[in-house]
């Protein structure tokens, strides 16, 4: 009886073991792409938003097909990116975000300029560093530090300037927003509606003084909560998918 059980167990083990023989024996991707999106004018990385409305890297695996389906991965908020699971292959790489596109077309669809990069990745455990120099639609720079007012609101000062002289990307500013959040991942998809003031400018009320003056924004009426608070300015023009350009996030100590 016991012997029969053993046979049975052995038989089952044989079946189970053999059923697992079809392993995916293709080695896992082990190469790394790191890099950053740089403002060609200042050399700083281009600030962006986390998630689907921020900068992303586009890879076309040209060694696989002449018409490959694009592979995208998101950049980090500060404009750097890092992906450690890249297969060895030949790629055409570029970035998409709130800046003048690297691949530009005219109104008939003809490619007029192409600054995408062709890279070849070989072997395993390699690291490829990519730097994309771009012209952001807008640059937003802080003027001094945010200031706590007597009523525990906060006032910030900043300047907005254009990052490109390309005539196709000179439309007027449509939105200038101050985002208030309790994390530094501050942006149009993550802010506290109670404190964040938004300013939209319709065509009729647009003015270029937004680009020449130092601008001041104050959080909405009501004391900010006593906790870490981060501030970030986002501004955009009507171009591409209307993504925002951002300042760096800053925090101030609650007095």
């Amino acid at each position: 009886m016991k012997k029969r059980l053993y046979y049975l167990a052995f038989g089952l083990a044989a079946i189970v073991a053999s059923s697992c023989s079809k392993l995916d024996n293709y080695p896992a991707p082990s190469n790394t792409i790191t890099g950053e999106t740089i403002d060609a004018g200042t050399g700083n990385t281009v600030q962006t938003e986390i998630g689907s409305r921020g900068t992303r890297v586009k890879l076309l695996e040209t060694s696989y097909s002449s018409n490959p389906t694009p592979y995208y991965f998101q950049s980090m908020q500060d404009g750097t990116f890092n992906n450690t699971k890249i297969f060895a292959a030949t790629y055409n790489a570029s970035v998409e975000g709130p800046f003048v596109p690297l691949v530009q077309t005219d109104s008939t669809g003809k490619v007029t300029s192409d600054q995408s990069q062709n890279i070849t990745i070989k072997g395993t455990n390699t690291t490829t560093h990519l730097t994309f120099k771009v012209e952001p639609f807008l640059r937003i720079d802080w003027v001094g530090q945010p200031v706590f007012n007597a009523d525990s609101t906060v006032t910030v000062k900043f300047k907005i300037s254009r990052g490109t002289t390309n005539p196709a990307y000179q439309s007027l500013i449509t939105d200038v927003n101050l985002y208030v959040s309790n994390t530094k991942y501050d942006g149009d998809n993550n802010y506290d509606i109670r404190y964040s003031p938004f300013n939209s400018f319709s065509t009729a009320h647009q003015t270029d003084s937004l680009l020449t003056n130092t601008l001041t924004l104050t959080t909405k009426p009501g004391a900010l909560p006593q906790q870490d608070v981060y501030f970030r300015i986002g501004a955009r023009i009507n171009a591409g998918l209307d993504e925002y350009n951002y300042s760096t996030p800053v925090s101030v100590k609650y007095p």
């Binding site: 077309t105 008939t108 669809g109 009507n238 171009a239 998918l241």
Partner: peptide, 11 residues
């Protein structure tokens, strides 16, 4: 204001 072309310049 969103445009997309294919390789044969079809919009």
């Amino acid at each position: 204001s969103i445009t997309l072309f294919d390789g044969s310049q079809n919009q």
